[in-house]
């Protein structure tokens, strides 16, 4: 007895009405569906493989881009404070040991504000009054 007969007999015993029905394939695929199914599948496989490569490449580049960003950010935060530290260090401890030229090189970029006090006016009378008030001997100044 083959499989179909075995199945039919089994069915006739337990479900005579169902057994009497014609077996139909009610779910037909649209016409032409199977003709290009294999190429659709191949395309998907191809796309997935290419997609994986792209993803891998993207990740590869992202890795380096991320490293560059970290370095830039780190540079931004650390470089200025390092410079200030260097200058502060110079100011606090090393100024005495530096030559004038070295100091100028070091501080040359900073605008230097001079505090001036007008002690002598162009007016001779004021000058004389000032010298008298401060008890300055003019002959001493001029080396006379």
């Amino acid at each position: 007895m083959n499989m179909n007969q075995e199945n039919d007999n089994e069915l006739k015993k337990s479900a005579p009405y169902l057994a009497s029905l014609e077996k139909k394939n009610s779910f037909q695929a649209p016409e032409g569906f199977f003709e290009d199914l294999s190429s659709k599948i191949e395309d998907k496989i191809q796309a997935a493989t290419t997609g994986k490569k792209h993803t891998y490449l993207s990740l590869h580049y992202v890795k380096y881009a991320a490293a560059a960003v970290v370095l830039l950010v780190a540079g931004y935060f650390f470089y200025p404070s390092k410079t200030v530290l260097q200058k502060n260090t110079l100011t606090a401890w090393n100024v005495d040991s530096l030559t004038d030229d070295e100091l100028l090189d070091e501080w040359g970029d900073f605008p230097i504000e001079y505090e001036t006090e007008t002690v002598v006016s162009n007016d001779d009378a004021d000058m004389i009054n000032y010298l008298i008030d401060n008890k300055v001997d003019v002959t001493e100044i001029n080396g006379i």
């Binding site: 779910f27 695929a29 649209p30 569906f33 199914l37 659709k40 599948i41 998907k44 496989i45 997935a48």
Partner: peptide, 16 residues
């Protein structure tokens, strides 16, 4: 049909 089409394709992709 559309679901069946997708699942049939997925089946063969897994087979591959």
């Amino acid at each position: 049909h559309d679901d069946a089409s997708d699942l049939t394709q997925n089946t063969f992709i897994k087979v591959w």
